[in-house]
Design a protein around this nucleic acid. Structure first.
Length: 489
RNA sequence: GGUCGCGUGGCCGAGUGGCUUAGGCACUGGUCUGCAAAACCAGUUACAGCGGUUCGAAUCCGCUCGCGACCUCCA
């Protein structure tokens, strides 16, 4: 099943033809959220990008198992806080059970993902549910000579590993340089070398989340869960591993090292990384405290926001940029996305009601081919969208009689919108505009009354009705064959 | 400090050697309309700076300036 799909592989720093290890099956693992805070725009970008990869692969006939984890064990806060678990810390602050926090923010995340019309992953494993597997993996690593214990904690011996393997193959780091450059940390560390990282951490007394292990009562290290769960559900090696660029180092680098050390296998064939969302040119992140949560975006409840933005506006905004470039947030950009998206959706609705003519004045098959070419070229969603807008122009031109389209091409055009706008890009038509229940007939009545007024040139009445409807966010359009209306939420 | 990346028109954002008018938004003019809205047509504003390679560069190379990411939890 060669479909000429190309992805940029971070591992080799170039675009490569995608060839799954076991066609037609594809295994994809994506780093999910650490559930200790509200999901923000950055989470949305990663999730949307790989949602499109998932949809794309499925659309072209692959059988995809998509695994996206929930990190509910929490990573170490930093080296200086005694190994305190991030989730545990938050729990104490808010006087809640750690698992309460986890539940709360997992729910928030799911809610936001659903609003953004994300397909659910095939499996959404939790780190806390895989402690046993993680311990087993640490034992493998130790047996193979790449892990050592110190005071109940276990560390990965990067220097030893690097003798026969290449630590840094993904991120381009050089161990010797890392050793030179790492700052001294007051020697409060049990690590042999500063580049070593924790596989298991002994819990401090105040540390709430803890599990028994052969070494101590504690918790697994930062990078282990992805290695473990990826191998468990997708095998080793598997096809695609995705995540944000900020996870490239050290997280993904460590994943490779651990997996290689435990399973003697390079774990992943294609590494894909989405770039960051910036605000005023700066990365949006928890630590900089300049992030905007998805709820704030949907509600317009943030000082940086002029208004609320619908989930689909966010989705469109994100997909209008290529996933490997940074994307700068601004109200103007979001407003532009909102208008553009609405235009696209209106036109798609129009296309479904178009009447075919004798022949086509535009080359629809070529347009469809361009769409396919774009999305297969390293997920060039921005170019795909520009082609969809060519479809918009054709649709609207046919509607006003400037162009014609054959019956066959019309169904091709509609299929193109269906396939690319909805199935692959994952856009979603907004609330049913034909009107449900009583709304439709009611609107018919109102517009009928207004039409009578217009025929009688009683424009005071007709404009009064239109103005009132506009206030309710209902836009009316007087067209040749009657008045249409749309509701903009 | 080390490693890597970026700088495109009013805004966002594609494009990597020679017509891409990319596309969206905004703006201007026109068509349509009772007026609008929507739509269509036309138009305006570019490739950070300097130098080099080349018949030809936004696109390759060098330098300068500016910005950012990673090196610490982060999508």
């Amino acid at each position: 099943m060669a479909i000429n799909l190309e992805f940029y592989n971070t591992l080799n720093r170039k675009k490569e033809v995608f060839e799954p290890l076991n066609p037609p099956n594809v295994g994809m693992y994506v780093c999910g959220p650490t559930v200790y805070g509200d999901p923000h725009l950055g989470h949305a970008r990663a999730a949307i990008v790989f949602d499109v990869v998932f949809r794309l692969l499925s659309h072209f006939g692959y059988k995809v198992r998509y695994v996206r984890n929930i990190t509910d064990v929490g990573h170490l806060e930093n080296d200086a806080d005694g190994g305190e678990d991030k989730i545990a810390k938050k729990a104490r602050l808010e006087q809640l059970e750690p698992m309460e926090i986890v539940q709360l923010y997992t729910d928030q995340y799911h809610k936001a993902m659903d609003a953004l019309n994300m397909l659910h992953p095939s499996i959404e494993p939790r780190a806390s549910g895989h402690i046993i597997e993680q311990i087993a993996m640490i034992e493998e690593i130790m047996e193979n000579g790449f892990g050592y214990e110190k005071d109940g904690s276990v560390y990965f011996d990067v220097v030893e590993y690097n003798k026969k393997n290449h630590y840094g193959k993904l991120s381009g780091r050089v161990v010797e340089e890392l050793l030179d450059n790492t700052r001294d940390l007051e020697g409060q560390d049990d690590k042999k070398n500063s580049v070593d990282f924790a596989l298991w951490k002994k819990a401090q007394p105040e540390h709430i989340m803890r599990w028994p292990s052969p070494w101590s009562v504690g918790f697994p290290g930062w990078h282990l869960e992805c290695s473990t769960m990826g191998a468990k559900y997708l095998g080793s090696p598997f096809d695609i591993h995705g995540g944000g660029m900020d996870l490239l180092f050290p997280h993904h680098e460590c994943e490779i090292a651990q997996s290689q050390a435990a399973n003697k296998q390079d774990p992943v064939k294609y590494w894909m990384h989405n770039n960051m969302i910036t605000i005023n040119g700066q990365k949006m992140s928890k630590s900089l405290n300049n992030f905007i949560t998805l709820d704030q975006l949907f509600e317009g409840d943030h000082e940086a926001l002029d208004q609320a933005y619908a989930p689909m506006t966010i989705r469109f905004f994100i997909l209008q940029a290529h996933y490997r470039g940074t994307l700068d947030f601004s109200n103007d950009a979001l407003k532009a996305a909102e208008k553009g998206y609405r235009k696209l959706m209106n036109s798609i609705a129009t296309a479904s009601k178009l009447s075919p003519g004798e022949k086509s004045t535009s080359d629809i098959p070529a347009l469809v081919e361009n769409c396919e070419k774009a999305i297969k070229d390293d997920l060039s969603t921005s170019i795909l969208i520009s082609h969809l807008f060519e479809g918009v122009r054709i649709t609207n031109s046919v509607k006003i009689g400037e162009e014609t389209i054959s019956k066959g091409d019309l169904s091709l055009l509609n299929k193109m919108f269906e396939d690319y706008a909805f199935n692959i890009l994952g856009f979603q038509a907004e609330a049913d505009q034909t009107g449900q229940g009583v709304i439709g007939p009611l609107m018919d009545l109102i517009l009928d009354i207004r039409q009578d007024a217009r025929v009688n040139k009683n424009f005071d009445i007709s404009d009064k009705i239109r103005d009132a409807l506009t206030t309710m966010k209902i836009t009316t359009k007087d067209e040749k064959d009657g008045t249409s209306w749309t509701y903009d939420e």
